[in-house]
């Protein structure tokens, strides 16, 4: 498990230097524009733009490709099944499945320049200053904070089970063992909640989070943001006008 989306946040690129609040906002606008796309040329344009931003962000492609497996798994049923089941024939199904697949891929790629170029806690602070409810942001940060320790603990538990000769198979016994293992995990998390909370209070936690980073929105930020917004507008424009001229 590699939960570090921000593993390459320390690099330097035009996207790394973009103000985190602006980055999240304008890429969100682009994602909405991409969701509006209905035709193949628009989907391909979205994919091209997303890929260009990924290249600009200098995040290694090997890191990204490893993370695309899951989304391929969720999107490929549409590419395979829509041609077989579309009421308008296989050609219409293939076209629609292709648009969904390419669009989906483009939208996942946008996540890397959007959240991979800022340290995670700074992204969360940016969300809070963008009026995402404070309680939600606090919960995300806490959950994130404890993921790493618990992941280590699950690994230890699985190792212990293997050392006792446990081999996972598709049977009731295996599922029962997993149930107990998960139950134990929940008990451990529960036993820790009280201690963690008291430790936080002892360190002066006043129901608020602070970070040392400050945001500043500068002229280059404005330029880059406008560029991305313009790309979103062009994307919707191309998608709406293409069938009129070429369809």
């Amino acid at each position: 498990m590699h939960p570090e989306i921000d593993r390459f946040a320390h690099l330097s690129s035009p996207l790394h230097r973009l103000d985190a609040r602006a980055k999240i906002t304008v890429f969100l606008v682009f994602l909405v524009a991409a969701a509006l796309v209905r035709h193949l040329p628009g989907a391909l344009l979205a994919l091209g733009l997303a890929f260009w931003w990924v290249v600009l962000s200098r995040i290694p492609l090997s890191f990204i490709c490893r993370r695309l497996k899951a989304v391929m798994l969720f999107l490929s049923p549409f590419l395979i099944l829509l041609p077989l089941t579309h009421p308008g024939g296989w050609e219409a199904g293939l076209r629609q499945g292709g648009v969904i697949f390419i669009k989906g891929l483009a939208m996942v790629l946008v996540v890397f320049p959007m959240f991979g170029t800022t340290p995670f806690h700074v992204s969360m602070k940016a969300l809070a200053s963008l009026k995402v409810p404070e309680r939600l942001v606090a919960m995300i940060l806490f959950t994130y904070r404890y993921l790493f320790g618990f992941a280590e603990e699950v690994r230890t538990m699985q190792q212990a089970a293997r050392a006792r000769g446990f081999k996972p198979r598709s049977n009731r016994r295996t599922l029962g063992t997993f149930g107990n293992l998960i139950g134990l995990m929940v008990v451990r998390a529960y036993e820790r909640t009280e201690r963690i909370y008291q430790a936080m209070l002892a360190r002066g936690f006043k129901n608020k989070f602070g970070t040392l980073s400050e945001f500043s929105f500068t002229w280059p930020d404005a330029g880059k943001s406008l560029g991305i917004l313009l790309a979103a507008a062009v994307l919707v424009g191309v998608d709406r006008l293409w069938p009129k001229f070429f369809g």
């Binding site: 993921l147 599922l175 998390a189 963690i196």
Partner: peptide, 20 residues
Amino acid sequence: LPKAAVMTSGFFVASLVHVP
């Protein structure tokens, strides 16, 4: 919330276990 979040973290990790 911090307490619910710690539990969420535990569930999150538990849901990553591969079951054959």
